[in-house]
Amino acid sequence: MNLNHPEATQQALSILRSGNPFQWYVITMLAFVVYIYFNEIQNKNWKGIAAGLSLYMVHWFVEIINALIQHFTGHALWTVPTGTAFLILIGVGVELSLMFSVSGLIFSKILPEDPKAKILGINNRLFIAIANAAFYSIFEIFLVKTPCFVWVYPWWGALPVFITVYVPFWVVSLYCYDWQPKVQKAVIGSLFAINAGMLVVFAGILKWI
């Protein structure tokens, strides 16, 4: 199999959770994220917060799975070998992670008030979720043309990332917006517990990711 820039894996592993590339702008980005959520808490926009946190939990889940794929097969599906101030896992730098932490909240702002309303004959939540997933997947085509983002496996690309990554991101996020608070808390809490458990075991104890 002809791999695309397989050297990117070792490049990424060499900076994984290293403080050497750190830049101060990360602190500013983190402050903006905290401000955004505190502002939504002040406004009691619990539905928007649920949309944001649910997407972020799915984001962490798929990033952990991607890192495990690297451990077991030698390469991740997507890899960040450079260009980040702090590489959290092999496929995600702190900048991307902070962006995803607010993406669901941001896009919840454009949701029609009626969850059953349709756009082009499709439920608006599903339509916007698919549209967002398509946009993010297409944008990755640009990213892989830069040194900062690599699809090592030739069979991985915009279509599989659309189906397996971004559709789950956005479907969970935008449907979570309308769920009852009890369901929102259960979904977000369960995903948090799963992610935390995997990080403790696979990163903290076994050092696999």
Rank of each mutant, 00 (worst) to 15 (best):
F162L: 13
E40D: 13
E63A: 05
P160A: 07
Q184N: 08
V161M: 10
L3V: 07
V62M: 08
A8E: 07
E63C: 09
L77S: 02
Q184C: 06
I36N: 01
W170L: 03
C176G: 13
I27V: 15
V172T: 13
V94L: 13
W60F: 12
G121R: 12
V92E: 12
C148P: 00
G19E: 06
Q23L: 10
S173R: 04
P147L: 11
V144F: 09
G204P: 03
F22G: 10
I205A: 03
N132F: 08
A129R: 00
W155C: 02
I65R: 03
W60E: 14
G157H: 02
K47L: 04
I138A: 14
N66P: 07
L68M: 14
T82F: 02
W156L: 09
A186D: 04
A117E: 15
F127T: 00
N43I: 00
F32V: 14
I41K: 11
V167R: 00
N124T: 07
N195D: 15
L143Y: 10
I90A: 04
V201E: 06
W179G: 01
N39V: 00
I130K: 00
A196N: 11
Q184M: 06
I205C: 05
Q42G: 09
I205S: 02
P81F: 07
G197W: 07
Y175I: 05
A134Q: 02
K47Y: 04
I205M: 09
G48H: 02
P181N: 10
M1H: 14
V26T: 14
M198C: 10
S18K: 15
K118V: 08
A12Q: 05
A12I: 06
F22Q: 10
Y166D: 07
K44G: 00
V102D: 08
L126W: 08
L159Q: 02
V144P: 01
P168R: 06
M57D: 01
E140Q: 10
A117P: 01
A129K: 00
W170S: 03
I90W: 02
V165S: 06
W170Q: 05
V80H: 01
V34W: 05
T164V: 11
G48R: 05
E95F: 03
Q180E: 15
N66K: 12
Q11D: 12
N124H: 06
L16G: 06
H5L: 08
V144G: 01
H59E: 12
L53N: 01
R17E: 06
I188F: 06
N45C: 00
I64Q: 01
I41L: 13
F32T: 08
L13Y: 12
V183K: 15
Y35L: 15
